[in-house]
């Protein structure tokens, strides 16, 4: 990754016994949008608060353009932040909220800047509205406008779309992406939804228990997951036990061998975790024997949950290929294999 603009080096933060951020390192280029993706409790919000300066790390450093910011207070960092619940000041109007960070400018310049960013978020003319009279989507855009108004060096967003209803979410996502790219601002945002991470982020960092599991662009994470957690957390996948064979294939049952993409460290003869995506599984004459337990329809395709000796496999197939209760055989065109992790 050339020319890193924001560099996070070995950042660690403990709350009592709990390690919320465990030796996290990241490099972000200027203008890049990074998504921090992880389940709740993975430390992604702590990461964002460390970057904003609301928390002080126990060790590690944050550098911007080669200058260490770790000791700077939030007010000195010039990082914009959009909070999950927006944190709009309820006693100020929309325009006063946006102007809050512009106290260095003259009233005239501030008003001009407010009009500019409110136009950017498509809320021109809303300056005098009470915050409480705005819809959820409008509040979200005011929060973005407020954070952008002082021309921050980095924009931080905490679950920016989580408080919007699903129909609005997709539209706002597209608009946000367009706005971020138009300004070309370096952005880090936190989300627990992979769809959001992939749609908004140029690069996605998958977090678990305070550690970065993998960083990469969406296709890379999907096609080359670094471990079982990333493989199952990013995209849909089922997992089962297997044994690695010498020919590079993996044995998942008596006489059943699948094509595999072994991860680093997998040696032949070892017991491995096998992870398969629904689209790589199909019904056929050979393969693992199982019974269809349930079907979830999704347009012309459907997801079948197949019970294979106690393990559930999810298979994507055409709607009419099977029905609940059928005995089927399942085979895979491709499977990931990982060194078995202690359960």
């Amino acid at each position: 990754m050339q020319g890193s603009y924001l560099k996070v080096d070995g950042l660690t933060k403990r709350f009592g016994d709990h390690v919320a951020a465990n030796d996290i390192s990241l490099n972000i280029s200027r203008g890049e949008v990074l998504a921090l993706l992880g389940p709740s409790g993975s430390g992604k919000t702590t990461m964002l608060r460390l970057l904003a300066g609301f928390e002080q790390p126990d060790s590690g450093s944050i550098l911007l353009d080669g200058i260490d910011l770790t000791q700077l207070r939030p007010a000195e960092r010039r990082f914009g932040m959009v909070f999950q619940h927006y944190a709009l000041f309820p006693h100020l109007t929309a325009g006063e909220n946006v102007a809050f960070g512009l106290s260095d400018l003259s009233d005239k310049d501030a008003a001009r800047r407010v009009a500019e960013v409110m136009d950017l978020v498509d809320l021109a003319g809303f300056q005098h509205r009470e915050v409480s009279s705005l819809s959820g989507g409008q509040q979200q855009r005011i929060a973005v406008a407020r954070a952008l108004a002082p021309n921050p060096r980095v924009l931080l967003l905490d679950e920016p779309l989580s408080n919007l209803d699903p129909t609005l979410r997709e539209k706002t996502r597209t608009e946000l992406r367009t706005a971020l790219k138009e300004i070309g601002i370096t952005t880090i945002f936190v989300t627990h939804e992979q769809e959001e991470a992939f749609a908004l982020g140029d690069v996605v960092a998958v977090l678990r228990e305070g550690k970065v599991e993998q960083i990469g662009a969406a296709p890379e994470l999907y096609e080359n997951p670094a471990n079982k957690f990333v493989a199952t957390f990013v995209g849909r996948a089922s997992s089962l036990d297997g044994t690695m064979l010498e020919n590079g294939r993996v044995k998942v049952g008596e006489g059943v061998e699948w094509e595999s993409r072994p991860a680093a460290g997998v040696v032949s003869g070892a017991a491995v975790d096998v992870v398969v995506r629904p689209e790589h599984l199909s019904f056929g004459e050979t393969g693992l024997a199982g019974v269809i337990r349930s079907v979830r329809y999704n347009g012309a395709r459907a997801y079948f949950t197949v019970d294979v000796s106690g393990e559930n496999l999810e298979v994507e197939s055409s709607v009419h290929s099977a029905s609940v209760g059928d005995s089927v055989r399942v085979s895979a065109s491709q499977a990931y294999t990982f060194v078995k992790q202690p359960a």
Partner: peptide
């Protein structure tokens, strides 16, 4: 009061006094 309100003020560059009086 939502604690993120004063954090929001800080992230917008407001000094402690300004946060206290304005927020």
């Amino acid at each position: 009061i939502d604690p993120s309100l004063s954090e929001a003020a800080a992230s917008l560059g407001a000094s402690k006094m300004r946060t206290l009086w304005r927020v």
